[in-house]
Nucleic acid binder design. Structure first.
Length: 109
DNA sequence: AGACTGACGGTCT
DNA sequence: GAGACCGCCAGTC
């Protein structure tokens, strides 16, 4: 299985109403310190042939990673999270301590 | 085959 | 707090 597949597999397990950071996904996927790969993988996952809740992955600052190359999908991401009950402050950040996914580590290595 | 490119994050200055 | 450095995948041309 490719590294991207490992990443998608972890992202698929993030529950509704919770979020994970790129670094957190990388670590759970067995790719420590390679948060960037998660970003690469998700960039290619948005055209959804896969059932991956890509909107539940945000950066370590608790913000949505913005880019014009996402063609508005970053704003869609915020809407999706809000529709799951997550609130953003005036700086565009959400409360990570409150919403961060805490996975059952026994199912990962 | 090789160059280019894109949702990051920890560490150090 | 902000900016620089660096790790190093996979699709496209």
């Amino acid at each position: 299985m490719s590294k991207y597949q490992q990443i998608y597999q972890v992202v698929r397990q993030i529950p509704l109403g919770q979020v994970a950071t790129y670094g957190q996904i990388a670590e759970l996927a067995g790719l420590p310190r390679q948060a960037r790969l998660v970003g690469y993988a998700l960039f290619r996952a948005t055209d959804d042939t896969l059932e991956v809740p890509w909107h539940r992955v945000i950066n370590a600052k608790g913000e949505i990673s913005m880019s014009p190359l996402r063609e508005g999908m970053d704003y869609v991401q915020r809407s999706l999270l809000e529709s799951e009950g997550i609130e953003f402050d005036s700086n565009g950040k959400l409360n990570l301590t409150r919403h961060r996914w805490q996975p059952d580590l026994t199912q990962f290595g």
